[in-house]
Amino acid sequence: MHGLYNFVRGPLAWVAFILFVGGTLYRLIAMLVIARKKDNVVFDYFSLFYGLRSIFHWIIPFANRNSRQRPIFTIVTFAFHICLLAAPILLLAHVLLWDESFGISWWTLPEGVADIMTLIVIGGCIYFLWRRLTQPEVKFVTFASDFVILAIVAAPFITGFLAYHQWLGYKFWLILHILAGEVMLVAIPFTRLAHMIYSPFTRAYMGSEFGSVRHARDW
């Protein structure tokens, strides 16, 4: 077990983080290069003020019409995304690993809170799965890859939850948890999870067009 654990926690973690950071940079740079080459207008119309104004209206729940029209979805998706980001980054056990490896540490969430946040993420995944399976407008545009992506996101949280509670097969779930987390990190730049990287740009561009050219609101 020492060997396997050390492998997933050591070299494999390095690989995952390098692919995550490298892949993210690659996608960003590739986007900018192709924009410069073939879509130069996006730079001409880009406006920091209107871009931020638009982002502002879409990262605050109920600050735009669509989110007010769908209160349940809005609550779920905001809770899901906040927990998805905050729980792993501010998790005590994760920060201890950063501290152990690099001597850096930061404020952490109480473990009970992180536990609930994990459940919120899992609940969010179940809600999204339910939408994909039952809502016609979502079902129609759902591909097998959408389920895979959902599974990639759910896996680290489910395994992390099981490992944290140590009910059965602690080390098995722990190693699976680390692997699942690494898969997710690598998947971010190379799947539609790339919306994490791209969405601020698409939002800001739409905000720029609406703000400085159209003089209209886009929320």
């Binding site: 192709i34 924009a35 073939k38 879509d39 996006v42 029209q69 979805f73 129609f140 740009f201």
Partner: peptide, 20 residues
């Protein structure tokens, strides 16, 4: 086409929120 189309296609998570 360039960055816009590519990024739009890669970013869309097929959520269906545009329907309404």
């Amino acid at each position: 086409t360039g960055a816009r189309l590519k990024v739009y296609v890669d970013t869309c998570v097929h959520c269906g929120l545009c329907s309404d």
